[in-house]
Design a protein around this nucleic acid. Structure first.
Lengths: 139, 139
DNA sequence: CTATGTGCAAATCTTTTGCAGGCTA
DNA sequence: TAGCCTGCAAAAGATTTGCACATAG
């Protein structure tokens, strides 16, 4: 982990009043260490952290990702019933989901324009608008 | 099950070359017997069929719903990581998801207008566009 | 009759939880 | 020190699967 990545990870955690433990720093470094947005699954992140040599249990990865979400640092994105993805980008934006690889990426928000939304039922308000563009490899 | 519902269920199954077994007819009657669209979970449908007096195992409900999807009679909608919903309506249309009750309903397609979509990556085409409007009860 | 379905229980897979011990502030 | 964190293993759900039996065409 570079000094810059360490710094970024620490300030990311302190933004949410989360203690900079060894495990959280290791995970944060993989998530925001380079300043890019990430879309990870718990298992994928666990594999990634193990391959850096750090030891973090899978249960802690789950608990930590959930803690990051609760703290408002990430959001959970549901794209297929079997796995959850965790996204470091917090604004409402569309996603591309590649059906062949299962990969999830941000879709440029610029290209999406929603002109109107269906009328929301009485007594409710919009919590979030999820847009997933499912992509299939062209034959 | 009314004669009309039985008829509708049978023709719905035959549309997809699925044999009209007792279990499939019981499930189909609940799904399309009245001509309305339905959004069900496997467990919810299982409860419903049991309450009509028919006996169908939960595993068969799962297998049958999956068979209906494979046959192009329904589509699976993923709205939160923990459960799958199965929708008898086959066109691309937005959904309302009520966070308090977990209920899923169709949102009027009329109200949604998408002006433009992000450019699709080279070599891929859009398989489906999922739009889920998450609703929270107003305080 | 033969290929398809079905039921049941056990297996899988992802995610959560309980609890004893560890570590940050 | 006090309270928050972590690890592990076991629990909890949702869904799938293996296999023997049943049934539609």
């Amino acid at each position: 982990m570079t000094p810059a990545a360490l710094e970024r990870s620490k300030s990311w955690l302190s933004k949410a009043d989360l203690r900079p433990t060894r495990q959280r720093l290791a995970l944060a470094a993989l998530l925001v260490g380079d300043g890019e947005n990430r879309h990870v699954t718990a298992e994928g992140l666990h594999d990634a952290v193990l391959s850096t040599g750090d030891r973090v249990s899978l249960a802690t990865v789950y608990n930590t990702l959930k803690a990051f979400c609760d703290a408002g640092l990430m959001q959970e994105v549901t794209v297929d019933g079997s796995r959850s993805y965790f996204d470091t980008r917090m604004d409402d934006h569309p996603h591309f989901h590649f059906e062949d690889s299962g990969q999830l990426t941000d879709a440029p928000l610029a290209g999406l324009a929603i002109k109107a939304l269906p009328e929301v039922p009485e007594g409710y308000e919009i919590a979030r608008l999820d847009v997933v563009i499912r992509l299939r490899r062209k034959r």
